[in-house]
Structure formats: structure tokens, C-alpha cells
Design a protein around this nucleic acid. Structure first.
Length: 589
RNA sequence: GGGGGCGUAGUGUAGUGGUUAACAUGCCGGCCUGUCAAGCCGGAGACCGCGGGUUCAAGUCCCGUCGCUCCCGCCA
């Protein structure tokens, strides 16, 4: 070893020992006489002092050292003078008096600051990711990520799960997300797909009798990126046989509760995790992934105001539309410009407009006030609980648009009014998702979760006649407005599976071609089973207090799905293409 | 696929259509023996992402394009 100790471990108890440290130079401060070097490694920083009197050769080398040089220092640990203790450092009570300094490698001046938490252009960070990863933020985040995964593996092992690897080269299914395809050299014109998740394989492991399976596994989806979405991401994929929904929810609640207590004990959680139905989540928060850290719940004013003389309100009569609102506390003095911004947010989510009522000391203000009766305003006050100083925002639209618009407004107020406690991790479960979504473009029903999800038993009869009304045994874990995990109890009865495929519009032949291997497997004694798959990247992001999963991934892609460091994706040679039986077609043609 | 934001020394930023593009920091040199964002003095460093256009004159206005980013669509 080129070091006897790390840069994070020396304490007053080591005083007098001769030690060897090795790491990167954070800073070098040359006082003409004394030279201070702050040496950094994965474990911390330690101050090294080179004196021209006691070690002239080491001092001469120290004077040549620059930031990010890699150096090895042999020296003696000594106590700092009382008035020069650095209380911000774990090693701040001591320093190492250099006897010998070796430069193991020099460094060019880095393109951005390593030792300081300053803002740097994202593209530059990604281009020099190996330097960005040296910085404290990324070091902390990746170490935290390791601790999270380590905790998960221990937890799963302690609960009698076994980890089984599944193939990355698998079969494409056109359902769901777009697949990343891998051309086959051996089979001209045929392709593998990288798995969107090991969904089918883990169900087959249940058929195989493993009963409790898990895997920390990479998943691939060729869809457009977001702050919480990367083309490749990591899931804790798990599946159990002979379980019911609540068994899985209880397990996940225990896992995340213990995870937070172990890895980030300074964070608070809600206990027990709230469990609400999809319908309730949409009704109260306008979202199936509500941020439960704060209230500001939506209020349904439809029954109270649908017969109003105000044309905007009575327009939803008989249409199934909704009049819903929320109260923004203390926002009655919003300017015209601020109200316009709120209106834009509502419109972006499909609303025609936004009705605002500002409850000021000199009365209720807003463009709609003159169309409303005193008793209608009193009704709004009573229903929403608005009081002086508040701004009531009302959206009149179809149920889905009203929910989307008000949810967006709720999150806007969350950020503007700083309504959340940043230490809180508000986990919760959303249950009873619909089984099917209507796809307006394709004019057919889609599986809301996936086609192996079990419908709620008492809904079988109505399944064919009214797919819209069928609920499923699907569930999500949400946290702070993010979907953290998604899962379901699966179909293990070939007859139900075939009924579901029929509603999804697959002919017998199509179902056989796409999922024949699954249906065949289920005919050999498939146990009742179900599972869930928490996203590791999002989990670590939330635990780390970051708002983008790039900050917890060592080598992420940009929003254009490229790697700026290695410059991927990149062209390949004609020879490679020929071997794969591929030809590039000009996009214009 | 659509919409918004950003792009100016290595880095972070400032910059009414008008002289030689400014500040901080970093970098280089000098001084300095207890600093820890060390200090003091001096210096170098930018054709303002790229390409067009408007104008007597463009970092600034317009169009296009590239990159990063946020959002909508998309994400079984």
C-alpha cells in the first residue's frame, strides 16, 4: 500500500506516529516559509505542513505542487496549536508534518473547481465526469447509493429472498415503453430487446418455484428523458409466490422504513405510510403520485356551483365535468402578472382558464366576482375554508384536466410558498388503479399497469362489458410527488389471462406469438404471485435530497440520451453493419 | 413530436444598438514562516456557441442551427 492511513482518520490519538498518506491536492498555500497542503482522498481531508527548516527537500517539492496533483506524504502526526483547530474537519485537530513528499502524478489545471461546491455547467460536468465525480457532492451521493443497495441486499437476504440474474438479451414486446433493440449477427433480420424490466422472467421464476426472488437490476426504456428518467436505470425487482397485496405493501413499508432509519436517520417519515385509492388520490390531490408532504387538498365544488348563473360554472352541467379548486394561503395580493402565470400553468394542462378569487381586506376580488352571488361566494368560503388573505383558484373542466391543472398549481404553490419540510420523506401507497386505459389514438383499451396484472376479483363479470370500471390489483409506492415503485398481483389463471388479452384486442394468434411462452408456463401449475419494483435511482435521489437522478448515477446520459464524455452513441464501421445485416437509411428518404 | 429557459476569458457572472467587452475567482510570476476561500503586488487570458440577416454600427435586434436544461406528449 502506498498509504498507511486515509485522509479522514487521523485524530489526536495518533499524535507522534509516523504515517504515510496519499491522495489529491485540494489546495496548496505557500507562505514563503511554511507551505500548507490540503490532501484529499475518498475518506476526507488532512492538512500537511512542509517547513523549510525541518525538511528542506519536502518543502521544495511542496512549492511545486498544484491542485489535483497526486502526492504521497510521509510525515509525523502532531497536534495543531489550540487556536488553529479547524472545527469543520474531522481531522481538524491534527496535521501531518511532512518529512518526505513524492509527486506520484501531476495534473493539468482542471476545467472547474474540484474542492468547492460551486455551480458548473451541466454539459461541462458530464464531459469531464471523472473530475465531477471527485467533487464532494458526487462522492457523498455515490457512497450513499452504495449504502442503500447494501442495506437492500441485507434486508432481502434476511427476509429469505434469493437474488437471481436474468438475461439482458431478451425478446421484444411492442407493448409499453419503446425497446432498445440489439441486432442478431447469427439470425439475420432478427433482434433481441434489452428488458424494460425483468417482468416476464420474474414471473417465470415464480412458476419455477423460487417463491421469493429479488434482483438489483438495470432496466432499459427508449423514451424521452426527464429529471427523474434515464434510458437505463436500476430497479430493486422482487416477486413472491403465495402472497396477497397487503403482504407486499407491508414488506415494502418495512423495507423503506428501516432503510431511512439506517441510512439517513436524520430524515423524517410518515408512519404508517398512508394508503389511498387511485380515485382518492386523484380526487384529493389531482395526481396518482401525490406529494403528501403538505395539504392544500383540492375541493370539489361541482354540486354546490353547477347551477350557478355564472356561465363558466354551469357549463359543466350534465357533462360530467368538474368545478374544483384549491386555496393558496396568503396569496390574495398576487399581481395581475402572477395570476397570469398561474393561468398559463392551468392552460398548459388543458384548462380553458382559471377562476381566481382574492379574499382581501376590502372584499373579494377577481374577474368572476361580478358574476357570482353573495351566497355563492359564501358557499365557496365555506367549502374551501378560505379566509382573508387567501387566493382561491378554481378550474372548470373535465375530471382529468381539472385534476392535472390543479395538481400542477398545487406543486407550483408548494415551491413558491416553500410549503414542505425538506427533511420529510412522505411515503404513501396508491391502490386500486384502473385495469385499463382507453387509447384514443389506437381506439383500443391498454393495460394501465401491464397485461399480467390481476383484475379485482369481484369485477370479472363486468370486465368485458365495461372495461373502464374494472379495477386491478396494482399498487404504487409514492414519495414526495415521485412514483417510487410500481407493482401488482399477477394473473396465474390462463383463462383470466386470455380474457384480458381479448379485451386488449389481441387475437388468439397475436397473444400466442407474443406471450405464448408465458401462457404455456402458466399451464404448468403457476402459483398465485405478485411483486413490485422500487426504483433505486429515485430512492437515492430522494434520500440524498437531490432533484435529479443524474446526481446519483456515476455516468448518466443527457436529456438527448447521449454520453458527452465518451461521445455515445457514435457511428460504427461498414464492416460491423454488414455483420449485423444492417444498412443505414438516409432519414430524408 | 411540441413549448419555455440558458449559451460572453479556465470557471461563475455583468454588460441602454455606439470608444479598447467588465467583475470575481482560477491560472502564471514576484513577495511573504501558522494558513485553512491565506494575504499583498504584477501579468496573461474572450474573435461573446455556430451560420445568416437588419443597421452607418450587433455580445445586444431578427431568422436558422447546434449543445445543455425544464415542461407537455411519451414512459405496459
Amino acid at each position: 500500500m502506498l498509504k498507511t492511513h486515509t485522509c479522514g482518520e487521523l485524530r489526536p490519538e495518533h499524535v507522534g506516529q509516523e504515517v504515510t498518506l496519499a491522495g489529491w491536492v485540494n489546495r496548496q498555500r505557500d507562505h514563503g516559509g511554511l507551505i500548507f497542503i490540503v490532501l484529499r482522498d475518498r475518506w476526507g481531508v488532512t492538512q500537511v505542513v512542509a517547513s523549510p527548516d525541518s525538511a528542506p527537500e519536502a518543502h521544495a517539492i511542496a512549492s511545486e505542487v498544484r491542485g489535483e496533483f497526486v502526492v504521497q506524504v510521509r510525515g509525523v502526526v502532531r497536534l495543531r496549536p489550540d487556536d488553529q483547530v479547524n472545527v469543520d474537519w474531522a481531522t481538524g485537530h491534527i496535521e501531518v508534518e511532512a518529512r518526505e513528499i513524492r509527486v506520484l502524478n501531476t495534473s493539468r489545471t482542471p476545467p472547474f473547481y474540484i474542492y468547492e461546491e460551486s455551480a458548473v455547467d451541466e454539459a461541462l460536468r458530464l464531459r469531464y465526469r471523472y473530475l465531477d465525480l471527485r467533487r464532494g457532492r458526487m462522492q457523498r451521493n455515490l457512497i450513499l447509493r452504495h449504502e442503500v443497495v447494501q442495506f437492500i441486499r441485507n434486508f432481502m437476504d434476511a427476509h429469505d429472498f434469493i437474488e437471481i440474474e436474468t438475461p439482458f438479451l431478451f425478446k421484444s414486446t411492442p407493448e409499453g415503453a419503446r425497446d432498445y433493440l440489439v441486432p442478431s449477427r447469427v439470425h439475420p433480420g432478427k433482434f433481441y430487446a434489452l428488458p424494460q424490466s425483468p417482468q416476464q422472467l420474474k414471473q417465470l421464476l415464480m412458476v419455477a418455484g423460487f417463491e421469493r426472488y429479488y434482483q438489483v437490476v438495470r432496466c432499459f426504456r427508449d423514451e424521452d428523458l426527464r429529471g427523474d428518467r434515464q434510458p437505463e436505470f436500476t430497479q430493486l425487482d422482487l416477486e413472491l409466490a403465495f402472497v396477497e397485496r397487503d403482504d407486499i405493501l407491508d414488506l415494502i413499508e418495512e423495507l423503506f422504513t428501516q432503510l431511512v432509519r439506517t441510512v439517513t436517520p436524520h430524515r423524517r417519515i410518515l408512519s404508517p405510510f398512508p394508503r389511498l385509492s387511485y380515485a382518492e388520490a386523484l380526487d384529493r390531490y389531482g395526481s396518482d403520485k401525490p406529494d403528501l408532504r403538505f395539504g392544500m387538498e383540492l375541493v370539489d365544488l361541482t354540486p354546490r356551483l353547477v347551477e350557478s348563473g355564472f356561465r363558466v360554472f354551469n357549463s359543466v352541467a350534465g357533462s360530467g365535468g368538474k368545478i374544483k379548486g384549491l386555496v393558496a394561503p396568503g396569496c390574495a395580493d398576487y399581481t395581475r402578472r402572477e395570476i397570469d402565470e398561474l393561468t398559463e400553468i392551468a392552460k398548459k394542462h388543458g384548462a380553458q382558464g382559471l377562476v381566481t378569487l382574492a379574499f382581501r381586506s376590502d372584499g373579494v376580488k377577481g374577474p368572476a366576482v361580478k358574476f357570482l352571488s353573495e351566497s355563492e361566494i359564501a358557499t365557496i368560503v365555506e367549502a374551501t375554508g378560505a379566509s382573508e388573505g387567501d387566493l382561491v383558484c378554481i378550474v372548470v373542466a373535465g375530471a382529468a384536466v381539472a385534476a392535472a391543472a390543479l395538481s400542477a398549481l398545487r406543486l407550483t404553490f408548494r415551491d413558491r410558498l416553500e410549503l414542505v419540510d425538506p427533511s420529510l420523506l412522505a411515503f404513501g401507497f396508491v391502490l386500486d388503479f384502473p385495469m385499463y386505459d382507453w387509447d384514443e389514438d389506437e381506439k383500443r383499451w391498454n393495460a394501465a399497469h401491464h397485461p399480467f396484472t390481476m383484475p379485482r376479483p369481484y369485477d370479472y363479470a363486468s370486465m368485458a362489458s365495461d372495461p373502464q370500471a374494472v379495477l386491478s390489483e396494482a399498487y404504487d409506492l409514492v414519495c414526495n410527488g415521485y412514483e417510487l415503485a410500481s407493482g401488482s398481483i399477477r394473473i396465474h389463471d390462463p383463462q383470466i389471462q386470455s380474457d384480458v388479452f381479448r379485451i386488449l384486442g389481441y387475437s388468439e394468434e397475436e397473444a400466442q406469438a407474443r406471450f405464448g411462452h408465458m401462457m404455456e408456463a402458466f399451464s404448468y401449475g403457476a402459483p398465485p404471485h405478485g411483486g413490485i419494483a422500487p426504483g433505486i435511482d429515485r430512492t437515492v435521489m430522494l434520500l440524498a435530497g437531490e432533484d435529479n437522478i443524474r446526481e446519483v448515477i456515476a455516468f448518466p446520459k443527457t436529456t438527448q440520451a447521449s454520453d458527452l464524455m465518451a461521445d455515445a452513441p457514435s457511428p460504427v464501421t461498414e464492416r460491423q453493419l454488414a455483420e449485423l445485416h444492417l444498412r443505414i437509411v438516409d432519414k430524408a428518404s
